[in-house]
Simulated assay, not measured.
Amino acid sequence: MRPDDWHLIHDVDTFLARAGDFLRSRPAPHTIPLTVTETLRTRGPHTYGAEDPVFGILESAGEVRATFFRTPPQRLNLTPLTPDESEALARRLAALGHTVPGVGADRDTAAAFATAWQRHTGAAPKLRERQRLYRLGTLAAPEPRPEGRARVAGPQDHEQLVRWHREFDGAIGATLSTSDGSWADARIADGRVTFWETPDGTPVSMAGVTPMVAGQVRVSPVYTPAPLRGRGYAGAATAEVSRAALAAGAAEVLLFADLANPTSNALYRRIGYRPVTDFAVYDL
């Protein structure tokens, strides 16, 4: 395979015109490119940063076989690739002088690209996180159910969302790409964050969802402040947004869990989520 078999594109509409059917053909493993490109399409190319995004398409006999995207300063995101395809992409990006601070993909693809990137640039990869993608089967209410109720976050919750988003990003070591205020504004406008609140009306946990694309919705983020964990609040909030996504017509409800956190993985399984595949994130 030749490096120039990879075609680079900077316009999201052009990318989706060529690769949209491919991404929609497997909505679960392609959940991240589907949701990120939908956000870029609806909210503009600089939603995630000041630099233009870059997309890539690998075609064979007129059919798309794989894609990538990167929204600087974020890491590279890949659909599943063979080792040869990873090698060709690493050679292509290195030859063009692209900066790749990290890569995220299914476990085997991420490892293959990280190895190829080191071979072409000398940058030693470091495993940052192992994740598991889950798909909702039959939703089960969490037991025991904590006292309180679910409530969709509204404009009055803006400062709460800003604070919790900042804390969530800090907890996972995320690279900030949009302001906390913009993040909160967008989700309030679309009704995409649900609080679990105690009987006195105090929010104690939140769960968000991505827009529905290709029939799939992904639950993200799920956050409970550290002093309030272990009381069932996150499970209740996650179950509620999952129920609402199904009621809104989602064919698949997905979420990622950090494999280093056995508590969250066990929680998601208890409320009906089943493993799809494992992913990995490398710093390069």
Score class of each variant (00 low, 15 high):
residue 91 R to A: 15
residue 113 F to G: 06
residue 99 T to A: 15
residue 93 L to W: 10
residue 95 A to M: 09
residue 135 R to N: 03
residue 109 T to R: 08
residue 88 A to D: 06
residue 135 R to F: 03
residue 88 A to T: 08
residue 87 E to K: 15
residue 87 E to N: 14
residue 100 V to S: 09
residue 127 L to M: 08
residue 90 A to W: 10
residue 118 Q to W: 12
residue 124 A to Y: 00
residue 105 A to R: 00
residue 130 R to I: 02
residue 131 Q to C: 08
residue 102 G to L: 11
residue 103 V to Q: 03
residue 84 D to C: 04
residue 85 E to P: 05
residue 110 A to K: 05
residue 108 D to E: 15
residue 119 R to K: 07
residue 110 A to N: 05
residue 132 R to M: 14
residue 109 T to G: 04
residue 105 A to S: 02
residue 94 A to F: 06
residue 135 R to V: 14
residue 134 Y to C: 00
residue 112 A to K: 01
residue 114 A to P: 02
residue 111 A to V: 08
residue 101 P to M: 11
residue 130 R to L: 12
residue 124 A to H: 02
residue 95 A to V: 03
residue 133 L to G: 00
residue 130 R to V: 05
residue 101 P to W: 13
residue 94 A to W: 01
residue 96 L to F: 06
residue 95 A to C: 07
residue 131 Q to G: 11
residue 117 W to S: 03
residue 89 L to D: 11
residue 131 Q to A: 13
residue 111 A to F: 05
residue 101 P to G: 12
residue 89 L to C: 12
residue 112 A to M: 11
residue 111 A to K: 09
residue 93 L to P: 11
residue 104 G to D: 02
residue 127 L to E: 14
residue 90 A to R: 09
residue 120 H to S: 06
residue 97 G to K: 12
residue 131 Q to M: 14
residue 120 H to C: 10
residue 90 A to E: 07
residue 91 R to W: 10
residue 115 T to V: 11
residue 130 R to W: 02
residue 121 T to E: 12
residue 106 D to N: 05
residue 118 Q to C: 12
residue 122 G to L: 03
residue 118 Q to L: 07
residue 95 A to Y: 02
residue 111 A to E: 05
residue 132 R to L: 13
residue 125 P to F: 01
residue 95 A to W: 06
residue 87 E to V: 06
residue 132 R to D: 01
residue 130 R to Q: 13
residue 99 T to I: 14
residue 97 G to Q: 11
residue 114 A to W: 01
residue 96 L to V: 08
residue 95 A to E: 13
residue 106 D to A: 07
residue 130 R to G: 02
residue 90 A to C: 08
residue 122 G to Q: 06
residue 84 D to R: 14
residue 115 T to Q: 13
residue 100 V to H: 11
residue 95 A to K: 08
residue 91 R to N: 06
residue 133 L to D: 01
residue 128 R to N: 00
residue 108 D to R: 13
residue 86 S to W: 10
residue 132 R to W: 02
residue 100 V to E: 12
residue 134 Y to K: 00
residue 115 T to N: 03
residue 113 F to C: 03
residue 133 L to T: 00
residue 127 L to W: 10
residue 125 P to W: 01
residue 125 P to T: 00
residue 102 G to H: 09
residue 125 P to G: 03
residue 133 L to I: 04
residue 91 R to F: 02
residue 133 L to S: 00
residue 128 R to D: 09
residue 114 A to I: 04
residue 99 T to C: 12
residue 85 E to W: 08
residue 101 P to E: 11
residue 101 P to V: 13
residue 112 A to Q: 05
residue 110 A to S: 15
residue 95 A to Q: 11
residue 108 D to A: 15
residue 129 E to P: 00
residue 115 T to A: 14
residue 131 Q to Y: 05
residue 130 R to A: 04
residue 117 W to K: 04
residue 107 R to K: 10
residue 85 E to V: 06
residue 120 H to W: 15
residue 94 A to E: 09
residue 101 P to I: 13
residue 108 D to P: 01
residue 121 T to I: 11
residue 109 T to V: 01
residue 129 E to H: 03
residue 85 E to R: 05
residue 98 H to F: 15
residue 129 E to L: 15
residue 100 V to K: 09
residue 111 A to R: 12
residue 127 L to Y: 10
residue 133 L to W: 00
residue 91 R to K: 15
residue 110 A to H: 12
residue 118 Q to G: 06
residue 94 A to C: 04
residue 114 A to R: 06
residue 125 P to M: 04
residue 111 A to L: 03
residue 89 L to M: 09
residue 91 R to Q: 15
residue 88 A to R: 02
residue 98 H to T: 05
residue 88 A to N: 07
residue 94 A to N: 11
residue 102 G to Q: 13
